[in-house]
Design a protein around this nucleic acid. Structure first.
Lengths: 346, 346
DNA sequence: AGTTAGCACTCGGCCAGGGAGACTGCCAAA
DNA sequence: TTTGGCAGTCTCCCTGGCCGAGTGCTAACT
């Protein structure tokens, strides 16, 4: 709001026009174009004066002397904070999103895959999706299945019907009956607790409970490993869209970006940090700490799977993007994703 | 073998040298370079004559009059069929592969992810991995878990400890006791059969078995959906490596390729068709039916998870690639993958 | 017959130079 | 404060010419 008062209304209108025109055309926009298309009442000379001011105060940049102006990161920031008008997704987009989720199976990963796909398509950018954070999810059910005499399948059902499984080798043969008994006991003790709580309580027990202890350990490990391991994975789609943007002609930048995307860990860290209280979070250009993202923007929001189960969904694209449209479409996809998940995460 | 006799020994040596030099340098190779680096006993004029012959018979191409020669698809084919010498992976590569699989959890997808990652890294190309084809896998165990009164979790353990799960809504409340009884029955009937067999037998039953029938249906569906749906997904890694190859400067070609990779279905179809009897299958340039792959080569082989459970692993890259090296490293990764899977697929 | 030296020729890559176009900044007038 | 006019600046693009690499051909050589 402090920034807000620094610009008078006409400067705001001009900044808005520059962002609008530049995001639409990709060409630096000059005073004549602005006068002709957006400010018929003003002459190009007047606009030139205002543009010069906006450059001086850091909202615009001029690539070189005889080119038009483009928004700086600061300009985009001002735009999304104060100037952007709320848009809503058009009917064809709504239809595309609806259709994408219509036939998707009742399966977490399938839904998230689909979300990534459709989001990439409707925003023409790279989509990013993380699985829900399970550290705080409560355990709903535990099942132990004997596979071979010394091999047991641990099945864990968490809130939101999130299922995790792991195969564990045992030290000695254990019958299905024994396992069932153990499972019943575990269910009684662990149900309604989070993995962390189980882990804590486990440490309070002595090291003396034999197989049950071992299974318990693996169980907790299963939750955590799934978490620390799967969560470094960021589902993504639409990398092909990057190639279409002229800002990624430079090979090096593109390669750096691709490495970031395929590697996943750093991106995951960023997506995890998204403040869930905010509706949609936008990170523009140099606001990114990651050097590879210096010329990119992220637009992120959360989807909801169950009460405390939330994940992040968003897009990555060049700083020059139609923020209003992207936000509208991201919201739409996020909501559709939540609905698709709620359908079976009850 | 017919082709083999068409080239005399010196032409073969020259073709081999051209392939070797071109794959190493990326620059069309001329008669002088060949004479200096590979055939000190011959003059460049002699080589020129031979090169002209090789161009005429279609093994080499000349990009333009005053450039050197490059291998044609036919030339590469001749090379991999008759001239390529078996290589073996170096110690640093072996170490990298070993380490990659050392800490991988006992989980199918984790192992395949890791395989894709390391394969992309050691071959500097895009890696492609499909999950095993489950249509012929036998059912080992069925488990039914009551989640909510009207919601049941179906767990299916296939050969190779391949686990599939699905949540199904029931028409009326069913207790865990009922479900356990059903599961016991299903186990007796279905164990040792393939999904297809269960499906067939199901159709022989009347439509009158109520919930059990419904569960059975879903069970079969679970196997099939997982199959038809997950199998169109091709795990991949190393797209960033594509950017490093000079043959993909053209934006259009790259985009087409990326779409193929991200879409997955067509690639999946190709990978499924890999003849498992062959050791390593190489598809060069225009031998690909898919138009996007006309300037690419695929090098593919199979990994083994259990007796009848096999999947495909391979790489996609420009036709100009060090085939010998790639084949050696692909074999290594395939073998390591098989071992990592056997460890828990018993 | 196969090989070699020599030579004229062809063709892409690279660089400098110049014209066109776009936009600016500034100044003076309204 | 706004506006018209104008000189100045900078990129883009096209052109022509040079250079080097490599070829094909012919004639001589083994």
């Amino acid at each position: 709001m402090l920034d807000h008062s620094l610009l008078d209304d006409r400067k705001r209108q001009i900044l808005k026009a520059v962002v609008a025109d530049y995001t639409a055309t990709g060409v630096p926009v000059g005073s004549q174009v602005l006068a002709a298309k957006y400010f018929i009442a003003l002459s190009s000379a007047t606009i030139r004066n205002e543009l010069a001011d906006l450059v001086e105060s850091g909202y615009l940049l001029q690539p070189h002397t005889s080119a038009g102006r483009i928004p700086s990161d600061r300009g985009y920031r001002y735009f999304v904070d104060f100037l952007m008008e709320p848009e809503s997704a058009g009917p064809s987009v709504r239809r595309a999103v609806r259709q994408a989720f219509e036939s998707v199976p009742h399966d977490l990963e399938a839904v998230l895959d689909r979300a990534a796909m459709v989001l990439a398509r409707v925003t023409d950018n790279v989509s990013l999706v993380t699985a829900p954070q399970t550290s705080e999810a409560r355990i709903k059910h535990i099942d132990l299945v004997s596979l071979e005499p010394q091999s047991v399948l641990i099945i864990l059902v968490l809130e939101g019907n999130l299922i995790k499984q792991q195969i564990v080798a045992l030290d000695r043969e254990t019958s299905q009956e024994d396992l069932s008994r153990m499972a019943a006991m575990l269910n009684q003790k662990a149900r309604g607790q989070t993995a962390n709580e189980v882990s804590d309580r486990m440490h309070q027990l002595g090291p003396d409970r034999g197989e049950q202890r071992r299974i318990l350990e693996r169980l907790v490990e299963s939750i955590h490993s799934h978490q620390s391991q799967r969560q470094t994975v960021v589902l993504h789609d639409g990398v092909r869209n990057l190639l279409r943007h002229p800002e990624f002609v430079e090979r090096g930048r593109l390669e750096e970006l691709l490495e970031l995307i395929e590697q996943g860990a750093q991106l995951s860290a960023i997506l995890q940090q998204v403040a869930f209280e905010k509706d949609v979070e936008i990170i523009i250009g140099r606001e990114n700490t990651e050097s590879g993202l210096r010329e990119c923007s992220l637009v992120l929001t959360a989807y909801q799977m169950a009460d405390r189960l939330r994940g992040t969904v968003g897009i990555m694209g060049p700083t020059r993007m139609p923020y209003g449209q992207v936000v509208a479409r991201l919201r739409l996809v996020s909501q559709a994703t939540s609905e698709a998940l709620m359908a079976f995460a009850s």
